[in-house]
Each structure stands twice: as structure tokens, then as C-alpha cells.
């Protein structure tokens, strides 16, 4: 009996002893070889919004913060934090670098339940991605599917599906572009905030066909292109696109659009 107890005790002591020894060595090593933390980077990280969206071009807020603290990046690359964030970072680092351009997302579709209709009743997984793989379930094969993949991708709850089409709340939108990637039909683009006209349609069918599918479709009549003084509008494959860089927001195209698919 005693011998068994002794054997167990030895086993426990050996394992515990080795564990203790390793623990001690590790504790000493972690103190001796402690890596000094970059306090500046941590302070910058505090100021960043922490969305980790990657819109700045770094792996996340931590990556951007460390690049900022080393002077490898300029403040203002964060579209989510906007101007407030940029100013705070500038103050902390003592540098000012360029204007932070706040961006917002635009949905290029107005195919709501009043303008267009569903061709088929989709019973599958309620996501735009699976619905788009399935085929044409709505009358317009370019338009918003309305299952809200962009809604779930959005970090700031800025997107809602309203009457069958996604709508961006410009005040809430951070411009990170995650919805742009989430939309299987590539209906969402991110553009700088300013007074500008946006074509709310992505239908590339011929005018008559497009009009049949949706009342608010761009028919490619090129009227907007002709009236635009800034030369910002191009019509490709029966659908107008406006270059946000060139657009002055004068609104002439909005007045002249027969389908009323351009808004400001």
C-alpha cells in the first residue's frame, strides 16, 4: 500500500517539478526578453474607430496604427473615422497630412417593389449570393435582390432593405466598402461625399427591354451625356455612369432624365 502511494507521489512530484521548472524559466525569460511595447501605436489605436475593415489598406486598425506611429502612413486614410479621427491622430502625432476625404456608398438600383417585380418566388437560403447563383428571380437581371447581404456586411448599420431595394443612410455610412464587396451584382460603389449626381440603375439591356423589367431603368438614351457640361457622364452598354471626380452636382442631368433614375 505504502509503496503504491510512494510511486504515485514520485510521479506527481516529477511532473509537477518539471512543470514548475519550465514555468520559472518562462517567467524569467518573459521578463528578461520583454519586448518594449510601442506606446505611441497603442495611443493611436485608441483613437481609431476599431472597425478593422481594412479600408486604409492595412491589415486592420492595429496595422494602421503601427504604421502611423512609425511615420510610414499618413493620417486620413481611415474613411470610417472621418475628419474627427484624422484630426485627433494628427494632434497626437504632431503631423498634418492632407485632407481626409469622407466616402459613402451608393446603391445603383432603384428597383423597389413599385418599379419592378419578382419573376420567381425564391425559396432557398435568404442571401443575395445564393439567389444570384440560382438565376434570374427578379424581372431585372441586374437589379438589387433585396436579401440584404450588404446589410449584414455593414459595420455601422447604415444599410436597410426598404421596399425591396437596399438604401444607404449617408449619415451613418463610414465608406469602408465592405458592402461593395458583399454585393454579388456589384450594385454598390463608394464615392467621396459631395454634391453629386448618381445613376441609380445598373441595367445594361437595351432600352425597351430594360424599361419592361423596371420602370426606373436607365434606357441608355444618352440625354444626360449630352446635357452634362462637365463631361462627367458616359453611356456604355445602354447604361449611364457618372464619374464622381468630374461631377459638379449641377443637377441638369437629373432634370433631363426621362426615367428619373438619376438622383443627387
Amino acid at each position: 500500500m505504502n509503496q503504491t502511494l510512494f510511486a504515485v507521489l514520485i510521479a506527481v512530484l516529477v511532473v509537477a517539478g518539471i512543470g514548475l521548472l519550465i514555468g520559472l524559466i518562462l517567467a524569467i525569460a518573459s521578463i528578461v526578453m520583454a519586448v518594449p511595447k510601442d506606446e505611441k501605436a497603442e495611443a493611436v489605436l485608441e483613437l481609431l474607430p476599431g472597425a478593422n475593415c481594412g479600408a486604409c489598406g492595412y491589415s486592420g486598425c492595429a496595422g494602421y496604427a503601427s504604421a502611423l506611429s512609425k511615420g510610414q502612413a499618413k493620417p486620413g486614410a481611415c474613411p470610417v473615422g472621418g475628419e474627427d479621427c484624422t484630426h485627433a491622430v494628427e494632434e497626437l502625432l504632431g503631423v498634418s497630412a492632407g485632407e481626409a476625404v469622407k466616402k459613402v456608398a451608393h446603391v445603383h438600383c432603384m428597383g423597389n417593389c413599385d418599379n419592378t417585380s419578382y419573376k420567381a418566388d425564391f425559396q432557398g437560403v435568404k442571401s443575395c449570393l445564393s439567389a444570384s447563383r440560382y438565376g434570374d428571380i427578379s424581372a431585372c437581371s441586374y437589379g438589387c435582390l433585396g436579401f440584404g447581404d450588404c446589410v449584414s456586411a455593414c459595420l455601422s448599420n447604415a444599410i436597410t432593405v426598404c421596399n425591396g431595394v437596399a438604401v444607404v443612410d449617408i449619415d451613418k455610412c463610414g465608406g469602408c466598402g465592405l458592402c461593395e464587396q458583399a454585393c454579388p451584382r456589384k450594385l454598390i460603389t463608394v464615392a467621396p461625399v459631395k454634391e453629386q449626381a448618381v445613376v441609380r440603375c445598373s441595367n445594361h439591356d437595351k432600352g425597351a427591354q430594360a424599361k419592361k423589367a423596371c420602370k426606373a431603368a436607365c434606357i441608355g438614351c444618352m440625354k444626360c451625356m449630352k446635357v452634362c457640361e462637365a463631361g462627367a457622364i458616359t453611356v456604355n452598354n445602354f447604361c449611364a455612369t457618372i464619374d464622381p471626380e468630374k461631377c459638379t452636382g449641377c443637377g441638369v442631368c437629373v432634370e433631363n432624365c426621362p426615367s428619373k433614375c438619376i438622383t443627387i
Binding site: 510521479a11 518539471i18 520583454a34
Partner: peptide, 24 residues
């Protein structure tokens, strides 16, 4: 008979040590 558990313990500790050294 304790070799498995003792070896795991030692390897885990060593990897931690290597990690600390590499980080530095």
C-alpha cells in the same frame, strides 16, 4: 509510462521559450 505527458509539457514550454526569443 509518464513519457507522453512529460514530453508534451517540455515541448509546450520550449515552444513558448522559442516564441519569446523570436519575438525579441
Amino acid at each position: 509510462y509518464l513519457q507522453t505527458i512529460v514530453f508534451i509539457l517540455i515541448i509546450a514550454g520550449l515552444v513558448q521559450l522559442v516564441e519569446i526569443v523570436l519575438k525579441k
